[in-house]
Design a binder for these strands. Structure first.
Lengths: 188, 188
DNA sequence: GTCTATATTGGGATAGAC
DNA sequence: GTCTATCCCAATATAGAC
């Protein structure tokens, strides 16, 4: 059997799970420590601060999201489905670990003080990933208008993420998929 | 000249402005007190807690949003413009007082602990207002499909609000308007 | 109703030993 | 690197007088 992961990895796992479910601001450091089974000083030796831990956890989460989305795209049968696969990925990503209240990257930027650059940077990376891949996937569907369609879909994906605050996440992604489909079908 | 408003009103004004610009969690009570020129005990005598003040401030904000949106609808020349006027209202609402980082209602729900019902209730009222009026305004454009179109637009409006975290608010509403227009024009 | 002054505690971070 | 124990402060809330 695999050995118990080191303290650093356990901290990252605990942070990603708890920050996603309870929100960053709403999750005390103690809760992360308790779940990871680690002493306070260990956290600060590795990450320097709660914010530093958040940055590392978000970086790991972005890689995981990238993988989940890629897999969803690979599983889709045609160009249209590949473009809409982002919503399948959102469903899979949410139900995979602990279901999150809403997007951890938007949560980070919304909760951070105005001068905190780390949260903004993490959200910017997430945005760049979304925008870039949506453009690639939109190309076979919309041709020259790929960038325009991608911007539309970025709004809808972001809307679906935030709609998780207004209603339950499953409904939010389902509605987002429907809205995105309505937009995509303008280009058929 | 108008007399200086009472402490209660000054607290509400200060709270709405500071919570909108700095976020609820990121705004200490002291900052609200300082801006209102009021002593701590006065705040707690009127509102009971910081959360109580937030609830009252959000209620006032919802009324103001309702008015701004109504005015934008009244100023629009035709059915299509009336349906898209929500984005004009968002621009006017944001630039009116202190520009807010993003939607105060979504912020409240995102930042509140899971058991806090007041923030969720305030967001629910905001959602009901959006959904209801979008349906009314969609009727002349989409007829029987008004409810369906309204749900699409609710996602887009929510997306525009959250996009203010990814980019600056002016770009967010502009993109939202464009995306909404693309959807509305499916029903032309 | 409003003030001054103070109580209380949750929670992020550190000191120093092992 | 990791632990135990502790510090420190920010921030919410209250006591009691006017």
């Amino acid at each position: 059997m695999t050995p118990r992961p080191g303290a650093r990895q356990r901290l990252l796992d605990a942070a990603e799970e708890l920050f996603a479910s309870g929100g960053f601001a709403g999750t005390p450091v103690d809760a992360v420590l308790a779940r990871a089974g680690v002493a306070p000083a260990t956290l600060y030796a590795h990450f320097g601060s709660k914010t530093g831990l958040q940055a590392a956890a978000l970086a790991a989460r972005l890689r995981r999201w990238d993988d989940v989305w890629s897999a969803a795209v690979a599983a889709a049968p045609d160009d249209r489905a590949r473009l809409l696969a982002v919503f399948d990925a959102l469903d899979a990503f949410g139900t995979g670990g602990t279901p999150s209240r809403w997007c951890a990257f938007l949560d980070a930027a919304a909760g951070a003080p105005a001068d905190d650059g780390t949260a903004v940077a993490a959200l910017a990376e997430d945005t760049a990933l979304l925008r870039g891949r949506l453009r690639e996937l939109a190309a076979p569907v919309a041709g020259e208008d790929a960038a325009e369609l991608a911007e539309h879909l970025l709004v809808v994906v972001t809307g679906a993420l935030a709609m998780a605050l207004r209603t339950d996440p499953a409904r939010a992604t389902a509605q987002g998929r429907a809205t995105a489909a309505a937009l995509v079908d303008r280009w058929r």
